[in-house]
């Protein structure tokens, strides 16, 4: 980059920052108006707090077995009852929040980072590179996602890490498509032209200008996707392809508790409710964001 262009670039940046700030404020103002979305956000903050403080909040350890109190119903001693090995369900759900949130965030990040990079490249350069990348994405998309994950976990071996890899790979084409189309829509804008004119390199343009401007749709999709991945993970657990014992992953708890549903209903019901609340919260926030960020929906 030559020196004479630097101050110009600088002023361009400040201008953009200011714009972004006001847009952020505007978005927040509109997000706040939506009470359902706001309650979703509150739930998410609470969940994050529970996950972070799990060690302190949980009354017992993850794998504290006590055969003298197997299948204890919910009550004073154990608020949400105990399981077939006499472990406190509430404690396991609290510890499990870390796993379920990690699954959501890590798998979505895998998809976002790899898929995002591929999509940004494809969209920015177009031509043959675009064709090759997007045809590969089409191939993955033609295989139903859940089945692809089943095959992949079967091949890699069922455990938490592989589950995250499989679900993450699954999300790659999803994000590649979204990011490609938003990159394509912003790359012709004036400020990109301007940056190019002052000699900024491709990578720099993508990182500094294109990605921040495709941020809105990606944020919405990523939020919604986190919810989806938690459900997919639970489905894999149902088929015995989930986290390994004694990990208190919610899907695994739910799936393990299903055989006791008619006698010890709490074993499957509470992890199920935990999943439902979490996924619901992500969806409400995602939908709220979508509304708040969509200029067409302004009234």
């Amino acid at each position: 980059m030559n020196t004479s262009a630097a101050p110009q670039d600088q002023s361009l940046k400040t201008e953009k920052r200011r714009k972004q700030r006001t847009r952020l404020q505007e978005t927040w103002r509109r997000f706040r108006k939506n009470r359902w979305a706001l309650s979703g956000l509150v739930l998410l903050v609470l969940l994050a707090a529970v996950a972070l403080g799990a060690g302190v909040i949980a009354p017992e350890g993850v794998d504290h077995q006590d055969f003298t109190r197997r299948f204890a119903p919910p009550g004073q001693e154990n608020l949400l009852g105990t399981d077939n090995l006499g472990r406190d369900t509430l404690s396991r759900i609290i510890h499990g929040s870390r796993l379920s949130l990690s699954i959501g965030f890590i798998t979505t990040s895998i998809g976002l980072i790899i898929g995002g990079t591929l999509g940004a490249f494809a969209g920015f350069y177009g031509g043959t590179r675009d064709q090759i990348i997007m045809r590969i994405m089409d191939v993955i998309l033609a295989i139903p996602g859940f089945i692809f994950a089943v095959a992949l976990v079967t091949a890699l071996g069922p455990n938490l890490t592989n589950l995250m890899i499989a679900v993450g790979v699954n999300s790659i084409p999803y994000f590649a498509r979204i990011i490609r189309s938003s990159v394509m829509s912003v790359k012709e804008y004036e400020y990109i032209e301007a940056a190019r004119a002052i000699g900024a390199g491709d990578l720099r343009i993508i990182a500094k200008h294109v990605i921040p401007n495709s941020f809105a749709p990606i944020l919405v999709q990523a939020t919604l996707r986190i919810g989806d991945t938690i459900i997919i993970a639970a489905g894999l657990s149902f088929l015995g392809l989930g986290a390994q014992p004694p990990l208190p992953e919610w899907g695994a708890m739910l799936s393990g508790g299903r055989q006791y549903l008619r006698d010890a209903w709490w074993m499957a019901t509470f992890p199920g409710i935990a999943i439902m609340i979490t996924v619901l919260a992500f969806n409400l926030v995602g939908d709220g964001l979508r509304d708040a960020l969509d200029p067409r929906l302004k009234n």
């Binding site: 071996g157 069922p158 390994q244 014992p245």
Partner: peptide, 30 residues
């Protein structure tokens, strides 16, 4: 493997072996 009873046996042993200072993790296979 993914057999429920065997998983349970493994979970119990994993917890009990700690008394003998044995650290046992569990791997599930297809």
């Amino acid at each position: 493997d993914d057999n429920t009873e065997r998983r349970t046996v493994a979970e119990i042993l994993g917890s009990q072996f700690r008394e003998l200072n044995i650290d046992m993790s569990i791997d599930i296979y297809e």
